[in-house]
Every structure is written in C-alpha cells, then in structure tokens.
C-alpha cells in the first residue's frame, strides 16, 4: 500500500500548527534562497528538512528563528507573525524556540554549566541556584553531568553538541530547531547526538530538523520536507518520501545519498552508536 493511496494523517492534524510558512521568499543578492516556501509544523511533530546543500533548508530555520528578514510571505509561530525587523517580537519568538547549530556555538569563555545557565540568568532572570539546578538536570539528561565545570575546548564535538542541546532545552522551548546538528561531527560521535535527539522526540518535543542523516529522518521524523533550489519540491510522511517519492528530483537526491526508493527499502536501522 503506497502512501498516496492513504489519506495522510499528521500528528495533531486539524489543530492550529505551532509553526507555519506561507509563501516565504528570501533572496541573497542573485541567489533565491527561499522561493514561495509553504509548510506547517504541528505540535508534537518531528519535521525533517532534507535536500542538497544550499537548497534553503538552513535559511528556512533562520527565518523561523527571526534571524532573517523575509522578502515576501509570512512565518507564523504560535499563531503570531515572526518579525525579524522587530526586536521585541524577535526576542519573544526566540525565547520560545530552542536552536541547535551545526558548529555547536558553545560559549568558549564559560563553563559547560554556565553555557546552560546563561540564558536562564540573563533572559529569564532566574537566580543562580535555580538556574544551576535546572542546568544540572538537563546535563544529566544529555549524559554530561561530570562535565559541568569543563570548558568547551575540552569536550569532543558530540559532547559539545549535547551541551548545546541542553542549553536550548533549558529555556523550556515550545519548539526545537536543529540546523544540521551532526554535520560537523566525527562519525563515531554522531550516534550519541542522534540518541539524545531521538529521546527528545520520544518525549513529544516538537522538532524541526535540517539533516543529512536519512536514517534519522526516516526513523524519527513524522513528516519530511524536501528542498531543492529554495523550493519545497515534495513533502510527506517518511515512508512516502523514502519509498515512493513522486518527484524525480527527490529520488535523484536520495539515490545520490545511497537510498534507493525504487527497490525494497531495507529495514530501519538503529542510529549509529
């Protein structure tokens, strides 16, 4: 039974989406980074954005987080328009969203613990004791309690990224954005980051993940959006995208990564450990 024959039911379908893009376009000079992008993210969903490098996936995340102004269209978060040109609005939006970057972007002058508490003390104005308590809980959750007093320079890439996830979670976001969270990692540490992300998804966290990890998109994602040259060329549940993509460009992209949609799909594998 192919996905096209089944009416696609998305998680919390029919409720107002937590995040939506309405005909969003964004141009950098002559490069059309986003071209009439429309997509929605429902509460509780893990939406994976896939596609070739430079296809607009990361730009879409930056637009969601009010780090980019739009040329046209709208981005709505929790029913309100996201406006990068309005500092107050942008801060309110970002406070409710966690963002994890490809290059971790831990703050090198602060300890691991301070990296996690800095948002709590400066933005949420928590006192130090309460911030430390929350941070230590989150560091335990990502398996790094013993690194609380270390600095970023003394951590592996995988450990740094787990701290970055804890830092974002500390703000108790309604939505987590991941911008190629494993692209800068050594192969042996990718698994530990993906495990943390999967655990988060299992808890029901709403996540938008820009990724080249097709295993993750297929196993953990509830909805997959395929980007090419700034456009959304196809979207659907992972089964449809990975087994029965309707757009040739999607199949071409997946084949290029070693997926073969036409053939029998191999059983889902564990993320690399």
């Amino acid at each position: 039974m192919s996905a096209q024959e089944t009416p696609v039911k998305r998680i919390n379908h029919g409720e107002s989406p937590i995040l939506s893009f309405e005909n969003v376009s964004k141009r950098y000079g002559t490069l059309q980074a986003l071209d009439q992008v429309t997509l929605t993210v429902n509460r509780g969903e893990v939406v994976c954005l896939i596609g070739p490098s430079g296809s607009g996936k990361s730009t879409a995340l930056r637009c969601a987080n009010a780090l980019e102004t739009l040329d046209s269209g709208r981005v709505l978060f929790e029913g309100k328009e996201v406006r990068a040109d309005d500092n107050r609005n942008a801060r309110q939006v970002r406070r409710r969203m966690g963002m994890v970057f490809q290059n971790f972007e831990l703050f090198p002058h602060l300890t691991v613990l301070k990296n996690v508490t800095i948002g709590l003390t400066t933005v949420l104005k928590l006192d130090e004791a309460a911030a430390d308590k929350r941070a230590l809980t989150l560091l335990a959750k990502v398996g790094l309690s013993d690194k609380a007093s270390a600095h970023a320079a003394n951590l592996s890439g995988g450990q740094q990224q787990r701290v970055a996830i804890a830092r974002a979670l500390a703000m108790e976001p309604a939505l987590m954005l991941f911008d190629e969270p494993t692209s800068a990692l050594d192969p042996e540490t990718i698994g530990e980051v993906l495990s943390v992300m999967k655990a988060l998804a299992d808890e029901g966290m709403t996540m938008v993940v820009v990724t080249h990890e097709m295993d993750f998109a297929r196993r953990v994602g509830n909805w997959v959006v395929v980007f090419d040259k700034g456009r959304v060329i196809e979207q659907g549940p992972p089964r449809q995208i990975f087994e029965a993509a309707t757009v040739p460009r999607t199949r071409e992209f997946l084949n290029h990564l070693g997926w073969h949609g036409e053939s029998k799909i191999e059983p889902a594998r564990e993320p690399k450990q």
């Binding site: 987080n65 780090l67 500092n87 942008a90 801060r91 309110q92 970002r94 406070r95 969203m97 966690g98 963002m99 970057f101 290059n103 972007e105 831990l106 703050f107 800095i118 948002g119 400066t122 933005v123 949420l124 970055a164 830092r167 974002a168 703000m171």
Partner: peptide, 17 residues
C-alpha cells in the same frame, strides 16, 4: 565568529546582553 551572536540571540538575549 558570527555564529556566537546568533547563538546568543537564539537564547532570547537582546543585542546588548
């Protein structure tokens, strides 16, 4: 690195913070 500013803003900090 510019990403440091983006990471700080992503936490909800103002530019000044």
């Amino acid at each position: 690195r510019r990403g440091q500013m983006a990471a700080a803003l992503a936490l909800g900090m103002s530019h000044t913070q």
